[in-house]
Design a protein around this nucleic acid. Structure first.
Lengths: 146, 146
DNA sequence: CTGTATCCCCTCCGATACTG
DNA sequence: CAGTATCGGAGGGGATACAG
């Protein structure tokens, strides 16, 4: 099965859209996906699931500090976006397994690269935070500071 | 670890932290940075600035739909994190130029890779959205055709 | 032109209680 | 075990007015 493209929807990078002057933030469904992927718990869920299948309470324990409500909501969003696969066995007590889909694995890789870069760059960011404690720079050497 | 690492701050990837069972979301300053970088307007500001220096109202027009308040707040966050450089010329009317720092350029690259991947993958996500209109799968206790 | 200040709605998110 | 339902505080974010 080699479908070339589902629709005539050609993938257009953000930079391209900007060049054409399109609006991006509003009426843009990809904004929702980005929100889910980079949400407070979404990032952590993805990275944990990258290590393999987890059950609900395993995720809850591993992540730590996430409420049942938010974990359930986050998982539903990611499942709905096709990032996470949910398999519920009809047994008592309930047994549900969460894992990444191929799509989710691609997404997680991108998210993790960003997250790891931030972790690695935190010393440089912290340096700026310290410097920002002082008042704003005079900016222009030839004119008076404010 | 063969090297003792000169700085006291050792960069630890998220995956490493997870392996050690550390908490990540709470009391984690990098969470704030991620929030700023992936915020509603942060992503767009970064990608626009990647093309070069822009003035305040240039950014506002290019992005489109952002309020003065939120653009100013977004720029301040990114400036405070060391991602954006702000140069204010002391003239009337005011003239302020925003551009990416080297740190911001690195961040923007990671963010853009993620954003572009999402744009490119939207057809696959949309397919899941359509499928999610139906009720949840009955879930198979055993193997079943899918 | 480049912002700040104020008001106010709306969403996020934790806490708690309840269900299958 | 794996959720759902409801409440309520905190903060995001738009509209507007105003200042430097």
């Amino acid at each position: 099965m080699s479908r070339p493209m589902p629709d005539d929807e050609i993938a257009v990078p953000l930079s391209e859209q900007l060049a054409r002057g399109d609006l991006l933030a509003k009426n843009c469904p990809s904004r929702e996906v980005l929100k889910h992927l980079t949400s407070r718990w979404g990032v952590l869920v993805l990275i944990v699931l990258e290590r393999g299948m987890h059950r609900f309470s395993e995720l809850r324990r591993t992540i730590g500090g996430v409420s049942e409500r938010m974990l359930a909501q986050t998982l539903q969003q990611l499942e709905n976006d096709g990032m996470v696969a949910r398999v519920a066995y009809q047994v008592v007590p309930p047994h549900v397994e969460y894992s990444l889909t191929p799509l989710g694995r691609e997404a997680t890789e991108k998210v993790r690269v960003l997250a790891d870069w931030i972790e690695m760059s935190m010393p440089r960011v912290s340096a700026h935070w310290d410097r920002s404690a002082e008042p704003r720079r005079p900016a222009e050497p030839r004119d008076s500071a404010r």
